[in-house]
């Protein structure tokens, strides 16, 4: 009878094993053998040795406990971070690093968002960029050189392709270099497509808030918290270019207010053409963060800086 089972420990254990195996097989083991668990985007490449070492640093330091790496297909999330994550982006991720908590922002689309210099400076002291940040400083990683032989062994373990030159190039590099290289490749298998439809008209527009004292004051506040760390408190540049010298996207000559609006709103994706000027990348888009009034206010403030 069924009651017997409660008198036989081994049979009971087998019954328990069967009970736990059903869900295990259906939801975990069976899917492993289906192609939907092994998708790969066409543009996805295995990690280079430098990127892989960077990924190992990311795991060692537990970055994934505060930063997720998966953008959910929710409207505000796509606005904040970019295109939602695709299953085929993670084929080389052993293990996945999607995380479970966002104490800091998602990093799935961080690659290419900022220039390398931004990352170095931010790892050195996050508070320079975000005064209220609680992220620990990671500048100390630059004192830890990469061991090329170790990196090579790890590439072999994963079966990723590499050349002897790749390994040679690791000499003299440190763990911070690796971490920055990893940041820059994150999310790049999905092409960035800035939404610039309807922006052409803006390029010709004059700033409706031009010279408005209130707008300049608001613009100053926004500039100080969001722009100054890269473009300098006086606008004379740093990680990002000078914004008061009349050279825009490497080309001298004045631009319209609308042009400045455009760059703040949409950032500079590499190769993007704006009124005969070409972007190099490195400036993130701010239009998901700031409404029109704020962007025009920043434009007004930048103009006021130029006049100083």
């Amino acid at each position: 009878m069924a009651g017997e089972i409660y008198k036989r420990p081994i049979i009971f254990a087998i019954a328990a094993l069967i009970a736990v195996s059903v869900g295990t097989v259906v939801t975990t083991i069976y899917p492993m053998f289906t192609p939907q668990m092994h998708p790969k985007l066409e543009n996805l490449k295995p990690y280079t040795p430098l990127q892989l070492v960077g990924r190992d640093v990311y795991m060692s330091e537990g970055c994934h406990y505060c930063h997720t790496q998966t953008v959910r297909p929710l409207k505000t999330e796509v606005m904040r971070y970019g295109e939602y994550s695709k299953a085929g982006e993670f084929a080389y991720d052993h293990p996945f690093l999607w995380g479970s908590k966002r104490t800091g922002p998602d990093l799935a689309r961080i690659g290419g968002k900022y220039p390398d210099a931004w990352h170095y400076a931010h790892f050195e002291d996050p508070k320079q960029f975000f005064a209220d940040s609680n992220m620990p400083k990671y500048g100390w990683l630059k004192n830890h050189p990469i061991d090329p032989a170790q990196a090579e062994a790890r590439m072999k373990a994963l079966g990723f392709p590499y050349t002897p030159e790749d390994i040679e190039a690791l000499k003299g590099k440190n763990k911070l270099d690796a971490l920055v290289a990893y940041m820059q490749v994150l999310g790049t298998a999905v092409a960035k497509k800035p939404q610039v439809t309807g922006m052409q008209a803006i390029l010709e527009r004059k700033n409706p808030l031009s010279g408005d004292a209130n707008a300049i004051a608001l613009g100053k506040k926004l500039y100080e918290t969001n722009c100054a760390a890269c473009h300098g408190a006086d606008g004379k540049g740093g990680i990002g270019p000078n914004v008061v010298d009349n050279i825009w996207l490497d080309k001298e000559g004045d631009v319209t207010d609308g042009f400045i609006y455009f760059v703040i709103a949409k950032g500079t994706t590499a190769g993007m053409q704006i009124n005969g000027r070409v972007g190099k990348g490195g400036m993130p888009a701010y239009d998901t963060m700031f409404d029109e009034e704020k962007i025009w206010s920043m434009t007004a403030y930048i103009r006021s800086l130029q006049q100083k």
Partner: peptide, 8 residues
């Protein structure tokens, strides 16, 4: 395991 499978 890798990627989605690793997560699962």
């Amino acid at each position: 395991f890798a990627g989605v499978n690793s997560a699962n």
